[in-house]
Each structure stands twice: as C-alpha cells, then as structure tokens.
Amino acid sequence: MSNVLTCQRNIGITLSNEFAKKQLATHAVNCGLICGHACKYCSTPSLIRTHRFFKENKITSFAALESGTAIVDLWTHLRVQRQSMKLDSNDVVMMSTLTDCWAPEARERDLGRHLLSTILSKSTCSVRILTKSASIAYDFDLISKYRNRVMVGLSITAPVHNEHLAKIIEPNASSITERLQALHLARDMGIRTYGMICPVLPGIGTSQSDYESMLDSVLAAKPETIWTEPLNARGPGIVNCAKALQQKGYGLHAHEFDMIRSSHFHQLYVEDLINTATNAAISRGCLDKLKILVYSDGDGYNVNDAAVIWLKR
C-alpha cells in the first residue's frame, strides 16, 4: 500500500496487565501506531490519540484511520532485541494488541517475521500471534522451528457466508475464508492454534446459527483455547461501521450497529452474545475452552457467566 508513514517510538515490548487479565499474554509488542487493515471498528485511534506523532504531523489518529493511512515503526526490532533477553519461559508476548504485525504495510517490510524471529531467538518466552492476515502462513516455516513456543490465531469476525459484509468493515484484511484456511494449515503443520472469534459483529455474527458456524470453523483447527468478545463501544467505531454498511446499501445491517450505540441496547447485545456463545460451546462440549471477554464488572447482567472474564472486576 502507498499511504504509509513512519514513526520512531520509544517502546518495544511492554508489560500488559490488560492482556494478562484476559489470560492471553503477559507482554505486548506492536510494530507501529495504526495498521493498514483500516477496520472501521478499530479502537486503537482512541487509545493513541495523544501521541506526539499526530501533533507533529498535523493529523489526528481518527483521520489517519479513516483515510487508510498506516503508521509503522521501522526501528521497533532494535528495542525488542535488547528487551527480549530479559524475558523468560513464564512470559507470553502478544503480537499484536494495537496494530497487526502482518497487515499489508507490515508484510511488505517483513516487520512481523523480523520481530518474531528476534523475540524467539533472543529469549525463552512464548509468543501468541493474532492477525487478520492470511499472509502469516508465509512465516509458518519459522514458527514450525519454535512450534512449542508459538500459538497462532486469526481473528474471525463473521461466518463465511457473511464475509462480504465483513469485507466492508475490514476492507484491507484477508477474507474470512482465507483466514480460516491459514488457521487450518497451521493445524495441519502441527503448529499450536487458538481461536479468536472477535469482535462478534451485530447482525452479522450474532445469531445462534451464525455464531455456531464461526465456532465450528475454529474448532476444526483444534484450538487450545477460544476467546470471544463483543464489539467495543469505545470511540467512533460503531458509527463508522454503520456508515460503511449504509453506503454500500446494507441499511438493515447498518441499523443493527446503530442500535447498540445506546448503552442499554449495547448491554442487551452483550448479554445475547454471552448466552449464544455459551450455549453453542455447551452443545459442542467445549465450554472449558471458551473465554468471553467483557468490559464490565457484571453487575446488572442476566447471563450464564461460566465462561465470562469480567474485565472490570
């Protein structure tokens, strides 16, 4: 992609209490500020909006996302090289938490592979990869050499029959079919996998049959654990999704997003997702694998929360 800016940050591998609470990782590493997948629901601009880069370049984080601008840090590996030596076998590094290290601009520059190789060769820690890019499969040769220390997940946000809708919301990400193919290839190569059905898009993946379709596709990859999560209400993401669907002529689907702008209806959406995911997992005998991430303390929710991690407790 052509609309790529560079930014030299001062961080590499960071402690991540949030992802530790999610039971995903102890540390995080990202290869820039905004990735080129340009997902309409992305909450990263809300988290990095005060970064000095935006003031210096007279652009907001939200405008960068909307224009499809990617911002990469080509020097991340230099900091990661030094920091990796401090990690031990009890640590798990998440690649990535804010930006995708295999997004188009990162893949063109081999940032994900370079960072992954550095972390694995300089430490004894484990790495959990999360991406929306099927191009991760090009690095399965490297991952296979460290197969006991690397877990691969590809975010599944819609059932295959609704991937045309997901493409509107995640314009530069791999198709759902391509992501599942990469995940299943990892399984076939003996690479450890985990499931990430996240975010579950309202009206696109929230019905019982739609969720079960996604769950079955992920279970076919023999995941060690499966995480699922509702769409984050932070920032303008919900509005952006509705706008994009409306512009493509999917007014009814846009309405599903508009509905959950209300805190009351967002809670109902989350409750329905919890019950849908829990019932689907129970019927398939995999409730022990499921972890539902919810940014709430659980007060006022009427759900079976056997698999819920209440992130604000």
Rank of each mutant, 00 (worst) to 15 (best):
M151D: 07
A63M: 15
K167T: 14
D305Y: 11
D110C: 09
T157I: 06
Y211L: 00
A38H: 10
E271C: 09
M189D: 00
T206Q: 09
H255K: 06
H253Y: 15
L142D: 09
T131L: 05
S16D: 04
K22W: 12
L219H: 00
V303R: 08
L65N: 05
P171H: 13
S133Q: 08
K291H: 14
I71H: 07
D216C: 06
N304P: 06
S126L: 13
D188S: 02
A137W: 01
E256F: 10
A137F: 06
A186H: 00
S144C: 12
L98Y: 09
G112S: 14
V200H: 02
L287D: 03
F140H: 08
P159V: 04
Q267M: 11
V92A: 13
I197L: 06
Q81S: 15
F265G: 01
L245G: 01
E18W: 10
E178D: 12
E271Y: 15
D188K: 00
G251I: 10
L273F: 13
A182N: 02
R82N: 06
C39I: 03
E256Q: 14
S207F: 02
K248N: 08
G36H: 06
M189K: 07
T157G: 05
L78F: 15
A106T: 13
A233R: 07
N17W: 08
H77P: 11
R284V: 04
V29C: 04
A25Q: 04
K132H: 03
I13V: 12
H161K: 06
G300R: 12
L154G: 10
E271K: 13
C101N: 10
G112T: 05
K58L: 11
T157H: 12
A254P: 03
A25L: 07
L185S: 04
Y146D: 08
S96G: 14
E170D: 06
L201T: 02
G203I: 03
D73L: 14
L116Y: 06
P159S: 02
I197W: 00
S84H: 07
G112D: 13
V218Q: 02
R109H: 14
H114M: 14
D299T: 14
A28C: 04
G190W: 03
S155G: 09
V152Q: 07
I282M: 08
A70L: 14
A242P: 01
H264M: 14
A28D: 02
K40G: 01
G298Q: 07
R109S: 09
V92E: 13
V218D: 10
L180T: 02
D188A: 03
R234F: 09
F53D: 14
K243P: 05
S117W: 08
R313A: 08
L183V: 05
A242K: 00
T228Q: 03
R284A: 02
R261G: 13
L33F: 04
H161T: 03
M189Y: 00
A233K: 04
D216Q: 05
C39T: 05
N3R: 11
A106Q: 14
E229N: 04
T193P: 01
V127G: 10
H184E: 05
N275K: 12
G32D: 01
Y138T: 12
L311S: 11
R313D: 15
